[in-house]
Amino acid sequence: MNSLHNKEMTWVGDGSDGNTLTQTGNDLVIASKSGGTPFNLRLDSEQASQDYYWQATIQKLKGNLSFGAVSKDGFKPGWKTKGMFYNGNLTNGSGALKVSWGPRFEVGDAVGVRVSPGESLTVTFYKNGECLGTGFRLSNNTTTFYPCLHVSGSASLSVEVPEALPSTELSTPNVTGFYGDWKLDKAWDGENPLTIPDDRPLRLELINEGSKIKMHFKIANNIGGGASILEQNETTMKVDCGPFMMSRMMPPPEFRTLENLIGTKKITTITLDDSNGTLTVTGPEMKTEWSRLIRAPEALNTF
């Protein structure tokens, strides 16, 4: 039984000046004063000391948003808040702890958090009803952690608290064909092979939107945009890509040539070879090869 179900949902801000929070029932409209300094919100509910789950559907988003849990002592203004959060990465509110731990989310997605106290306190994350895995597992921790949102920019959310607690067993993605998550194996700039860093997977997510697709790349920055499908059969897709948008973090040197390849070179064809599970993404001046990404997320034991 979800301990927050049918309980009053009152959210409080972190006390920093100039930020705004408007709550209408379970709908939240949030804005930080500065895009570079986050505004943190915490649910004020004593039922958070028991096993609970909540999720929020993103209605509008401009900036960055993280979902997680925080203790009363860890709930402080701006970057000083320290908790357990997920935004594609696992973070503690001020820095990334595990980069590319799970898929990104966007407007229309429902992101969920389950906090389960016990001999090992666990924090498990969800996207659109699918369990992404347990992100944090703290041994011998009896601290109460409250639902928390971490917003840099502005967001509109609708919060839901279902009666039943979701499973913490990792969901197996039901994806076939071109779509789903892929891991970069090889890349060429023209005829020149590029080095692929091996410290973490470089990802591509392809999302089916009927006559269009969405393409999300995670190199060091997030790179993404839409593409119209010009022709398609079971093995080949001809596409016309619109301009890609990129987050503006300075990448490490080993990622710069790959980001330039993905972010600036035209993509025209996506080919699927079912015999070896290879997805090939090509254009007049580039070629990349990808294999299906099988997630095996690890839980952190500290934050």
Results as ranks from 00 to 15, higher is better:
Pro284Ser: 09
Asn92Phe: 02
Ser156Glu: 14
Thr235His: 12
Trp54Arg: 02
Asn276Arg: 10
Leu300Arg: 11
Thr20Cys: 08
Gly153Asn: 07
Ala164Phe: 10
Ala69His: 00
Phe105Glu: 03
Lys60Phe: 13
Gly190Thr: 02
Phe303Ala: 09
Glu289Cys: 09
Asp274Pro: 13
Asn2Glu: 06
Thr278Glu: 11
Lys82Ala: 06
Arg295Tyr: 12
Thr22Cys: 07
Ile229Arg: 05
Glu8Phe: 08
Pro117Glu: 07
Lys7Met: 13
Ile270Ser: 02
Ser211Gln: 15
Asn222Gln: 13
Gly129Lys: 04
Gln55Met: 09
Pro173Gln: 08
Ser152Ile: 03
Tyr53Arg: 07
Thr143Gln: 15
Gly93Pro: 03
Asn260Val: 08
Leu258Ser: 01
Glu254Gly: 04
Leu132Tyr: 01
Asp181Gly: 09
Lys238Pro: 09
Pro243Ala: 15
Val161Asn: 01
Phe67Tyr: 11
Val159Gln: 06
Ser100Gln: 11
Asn301Tyr: 11
Gln50Trp: 02
Thr57Asn: 10
Gly95Met: 14
Thr81Gly: 06
Pro243Met: 15
Leu272Tyr: 05
Leu149Ser: 06
Thr91Ile: 05
Trp101Val: 04
Trp79Asn: 08
Ser211Tyr: 07
Leu61Arg: 04
Asn208Tyr: 13
Lys287His: 04
Ser152Tyr: 06
Tyr86Asp: 03
Ser71Ile: 01
Phe39Ala: 06
Pro197Arg: 01
Ala48Trp: 00
Met250Thr: 14
Leu279Asn: 00
Glu231Asp: 15
Ala69Thr: 01
Gly118Tyr: 08
Asp44Ala: 10
Thr269Leu: 14
Ser49His: 02
Trp54Tyr: 15
Thr268Val: 10
Phe136His: 04
Ser158Gly: 11
Ser152Gly: 11
Lys98Val: 13
Ala187Val: 06
Ala187Cys: 09
Thr172Met: 11
Gly93Lys: 00
Asp198Pro: 06
Leu138Gly: 07
Lys186Ile: 05
Leu230Ala: 13
Leu97His: 09
Asp17Pro: 08
Met215Pro: 02
Leu138Asn: 07
Gly68Gln: 01
Lys266Gly: 11
Thr57Ala: 08
